[in-house]
């Protein structure tokens, strides 16, 4: 069953939602360029760029880490290294059970200490630190998927037959199972991972900006959408949005007078919603 967009026949649903996301972001940029002052405009779009960069880094981290852990676990199991496989399974089980906020807070605590001690310096270094932390919190979702794919093939004769035919385990796992038969699952995981990463990053950065340390704060951490949302100007803008409940006529000026906070909030929610929809459409289109 191929899902097509109702509004644009011929365009797959996932691409439709990604196009909507790009178009929506472009419209917000244009609107901001007209109505938002230049320093705030630069802040908002730098924050958006940083957020997407961190999302990219965290997905790569999660992918690489889960790839090593899953391949270690599966190959250990296939070759009779039971204790090694049990250790990897224990690590996975713990990662799955630890609430993400604990992992994030612990990670950001270490990151804060590293920044305070000036071990981690520079915008790129700190953003990479953010990405790696979020990636390590999310990696188990990728590992679960990779292991589940291998298990699915284990239920068939495919693996036993291939090993009997002399195909090396590395080729069987990396090329035959993961590359040729699980690429679409991986892409789907990456699409849904964007939403999780953006949500977790924005939330932890929002909290961080409320105050995690005396010496490390929003001033010496690069801005992301989360820290921008915690900015006092943005908070006032968001609070102003609540005024429409008591004075609906305020809606007319809301989108020109309180643009910084509303742009940041819209970019977060719009990104989460569009990437979620794109993930669902991709899974439906490819029957995953």
């Amino acid at each position: 069953m191929k899902t097509r967009s109702v509004r644009f026949p011929g365009l797959p649903g996932d691409l439709f939602w990604l196009a909507i996301w790009l178009l929506g972001c472009l419209l917000v940029l244009l609107w901001d360029a007209v109505f938002l002052n230049k320093p705030a405009l630069i802040r908002v779009w730098t924050g958006f760029g940083n957020t997407l960069s961190v999302a990219g880094i965290s997905l790569v981290t999660a992918l690489v880490f889960s790839f090593f852990l899953s391949s270690g676990f599966i190959l250990a199991r296939w070759n009779g290294f039971g204790k090694l496989a049990a250790a990897a399974e224990l690590l996975l089980s713990v990662s799955r059970s630890v609430p993400q906020i604990i992992g994030l807070l612990t990670g950001f605590l270490i990151l804060t200490v590293l920044v305070t001690q000036e071990v981690l310096t520079g915008k790129a270094g700190i953003l990479t630190g953010f990405g790696v932390t979020v990636g390590l919190v999310l990696y188990y979702e990728f590992s679960d998927m990779l292991i589940e794919r291998a298990r699915w093939f284990e239920q068939t004769d495919f693996i036993a037959a291939s090993r009997t035919a002399g195909i090396p385990d590395f080729h069987l796992l990396f090329i035959e199972i993961w590359w040729r038969n699980s690429r679409l699952h991986l892409i789907n995981k990456l699409i849904s991972g964007v939403g999780s990463t953006v949500f977790l990053l924005c939330s932890i950065d929002f909290i961080l900006s409320v105050g995690l340390s005396h010496s490390v704060n929003a001033v010496n951490f690069p801005p992301t959408l989360g820290s921008l949302l915690a900015h006092i100007d943005s908070k006032q803008d968001i609070l102003a949005a609540g005024l429409i409940f008591s004075d609906p006529s305020y809606l007319a000026v809301l989108f020109t007078r309180h643009l910084q906070g509303l742009s940041v909030a819209f970019l977060i929610v719009f990104t989460l919603a569009c990437w979620f929809k794109a993930g669902i459409s991709f899974a439906e289109r490819n029957r995953l």
Binding site: L239, A265, I268, V269, A273, F276
Partner: peptide
Amino acid sequence: FSPGYLIAY
């Protein structure tokens, strides 16, 4: 899809 704190504000 909003973060909860956004709706709370």
